[in-house]
Amino acid sequence: MSIRLSTIWSWLALAVVLIWTLLPLYWFLKNSLLTPDEIARFPPPLYPLEPTPAAFFNIFGLDYEMADGIVRRGSGQANQIIRGLGNSLIVSAVVTVVTLFVVLPLAYVFARLDFPHKNKLLFAILLAVALPPVSTLIPFYAMYVRLGLSGTLVGLIIVTLTITIPFVTWMLIGYFRNLPQVERLARIDGFSRFETFLKIIVPQGRSGVAVAAVIAFLFSWNEYTYALMLVNGTTANTLPTAISGFLFQHPEPSHLAAAVALTMVPPALVAFFLQRHIAEMNLVDPVR
């Protein structure tokens, strides 16, 4: 009897967790499938009565003819969305590659080697994680205006790196620290330190490297504050700032929802991978 009761409880708990996770997502994303009628309705409908994918066409500037013959016109912001999507992909890809390139050796050195002032430098990295973007915005903005980097992808990439590098370094330090001490083996086998790092450590830690890449990509893909200040309204607009157009100028909930859904595609794609490997990153160890 008590076993049954505990089973019910655990199912209930699971249901609560799933509702907590999915309800906010559902409530918003359903907008993307609503017809203009339904959107205008008050109170808001609990679910789409006649789900239509029109908004997903519209945000790319395509017209969509509904079953009743009414054509829903492509969004006027479509070219912004498309350019934003392209820019976001470029920025995220470059940031991911550069972050990996920079972070792998850095994290390795911090995790496996001893050198003077290591703890102070580690503290500087953690400080960089703790810096609020609003505090560094003006200095970056001032510098960018002087260097001609404001409104450019290069500028956005550099500033995004200041977010990804410290955080991913911190994650990987703990990860690298827990790998077996194969450096000794590699020295016996005659590998130089560089070879050891490139041919032994990186391949051995490939799941950690993959997590690092995914996190760097996500952080960059999801970055909004800097983009808002540094590239908003320019040709270097990213997807989130392009979407802001819907938010503040032309309230079009179905387009907004479809566009936000678009930004969630990469996170959803990596979620399965992340849930398996995220805990291999050790955020706890480096601060110990």
């Binding site: 077996p180 001490q181 194969v182 000794r184 083996l185 016996i188 005659g190 032994i200 051995q204 490939r206």
Partner: peptide, 20 residues
Amino acid sequence: ASPHQRNIAMVFQSSLLYPH
């Protein structure tokens, strides 16, 4: 001289091998 120059072979505690 480096370990490799000495041409020694070593077996480590708990038989360390490259795990990958």
